[in-house]
Design a protein around this nucleic acid. Structure first.
Lengths: 155, 155
DNA sequence: GGGATATAGTCAAGGGAGTTGACTATGCGC
DNA sequence: GCGCATAGTCAACTCCCTTGACTATATCCC
């Protein structure tokens, strides 16, 4: 990679992203959540905001509603979410987290918090805060208006 | 995301990674390289180091040799790489970049360089250098010994 | 009010990119 | 030189996502 220095920064982002996500799911699996994939975590982030319809979730994840529906079924069968009738619209259903779903989110937060604490110990917390602030600005500038959308990799 | 602050940093990594890669491939497509996927860029990084055998590439990308072989065929058909007989081992073949392959790498470098220049303008170059240094340390600490391996997402 | 149109969700079929398994040809250790 | 290891290919299968077609309910607008 010596001959192509400009590729390093994107590579660091990618490696960092993968390293955190891999470590998170390694630890989640060790705690009994071995049936959760990274994409589910992104879905949970949306569902945790007061529930979501299938179409909302599909839009958030940047996939078709059929694919989202299939994922919801996977999560429902394993007890992470429940499909509830939508009182305002009899066509629709509201996806909500079950207790197990909430538990998994709390575990994730604890694990990510521990990783972040390690990082703070490594860099110092003021340096980590700077890093966070810089990343926010870069992402905001590069991702533009598409900030909270299209979390999925689409490799 | 207000209720779960510790997810922000991994999210920023992921969004940053995606934003750069998406922007890179948007621009590559506009310049005639619309048949290149992000995974190919990672493969090119390895192939550019004096060529690679199929197995080396598979190991680098963290996939089976069958999958790597399939990807090589895709790239060969589109003129980015060539399979050459290996003079040292008649079982093996050496994958090398063609002129078109090298051209695409140079384009990528230019595009990534431009993005990085934008970032330097946004943050200031000394701050960007700090960011890079911090990221290196975090990635090295978190990814551990597996630094140059397993670049693929494995979502 | 009621018909045209839009939207939520499901069913079914297909595709892309990876996997496992089995095989051939060549290299290397003893 | 025999036996095992390794490079690459062919074939079948899986997973997760897509496109297309359909039903049921909601909304628009005359």
């Amino acid at each position: 990679m010596e001959s192509m220095p400009s590729i390093e920064l994107p590579l660091l982002f990618t490696l960092g992203s993968r390293a955190v996500i891999d470590e998170l799911h390694r630890q989640l699996a060790a705690r009994g959540y071995d049936d959760l994939r990274p994409a589910h975590g992104f879905a949970f982030q949306r569902i945790a905001q007061g529930g979501a319809t299938g179409n909302e979730l599909a839009a958030f994840l940047g996939m078709t509603k059929q694919a989202a529906s299939q994922m919801i079924e996977y999560l429902e069968q394993r007890g992470y979410v429940a499909r509830q009738p939508n009182p305002d619209d009899r066509r629709g259903k509201i996806i909500a987290l079950t207790e197990r779903g909430w538990d998994s989110l709390r575990e994730s937060a604890a694990i990510l918090g521990a990783i972040e604490a390690e990082w703070a110990a490594l860099l110092g917390s003021e340096r980590l805060a700077e890093l966070r602030a810089d990343l926010r600005r870069l992402v905001a500038a590069t991702a533009g208006g598409t900030l909270p959308r299209q979390l999925r990799p689409v490799w």
